[in-house]
Amino acid sequence: MPSASPAVRLGAALLGLAIAGTAAAAEHPDFTGVWGNYRAPGAAAPQRGAPQAPLPLRAEAKAKVDAYHALVDSRGDTPGGWCLGTGMPGSMLGSGGYPMEIVQHESLILVVFEAHAEIRRIYLGERADEGDLFPDRNGYSFGRWEGNKLIVETTHLKEAVDQGRYPHSENAKVVEEYSLVVNDDGTKVLTSNMTMTDPDFYTQTITAEKKWQLQPGVRLLPYECNEPTWEEHLERLRQGQGEAVSSR
């Protein structure tokens, strides 16, 4: 039997690698798609403003959070009202009721929230060097697969007293465990169990569960928020009113 040429052997080897890579990717659940808040069949709509259990905040942290609310609550100001993304963990726990889209790659999972076109990147490949990281509202997220579960650890967060439910310090660490199930009615449900550890702000570990359901046929819409302010600024410039509207 004649032996294969080097080119043929190389092609076969590359094909083998490609097949192996595909198989490895297929071993993990695929979270790709547009997701909305999950509601169990027949369940009542959640009530806004329902009382929530007090948080186990340390005294200094509570003072910071209380000062923030004293400043903005009577005005109704929120980060979202100022076209600012929610940040972790609020982005992943609700994002204002708007859908989110997940695009899953082998070494990166992109989470695109419709609200404020906020983007969260979950890296699965090589962890970034510490010197290349800096604090951000969504922090730095690094994930790994454990069987069918995706474990995501988020650090390098900015202190955020403006988080709607779980304010935190810059030293907060969020660990999420994601799993995908298919309900009897065929609905794909993505569940995240979150644990936030933040000794600077809390006397106890914070836990929360969030469920999303796949929304076939739904597409994310553009969410440009600052355009009216920009247009207003341009109009004032056209009218010779100079810097009457300042950037923010």
């Binding site: 806004r48 109704g76 929120t78």
Partner: peptide, 22 residues
């Protein structure tokens, strides 16, 4: 479902630099 999402999830984003749902 999307309409319900509107009903329960919209208002927090309705406040702006100029106006406030409060």
């Amino acid at each position: 479902r999307m309409l319900l999402a509107v009903a329960i999830g919209l208002v927090p984003f309705a406040a702006s630099a100029h106006h406030s749902a409060v």
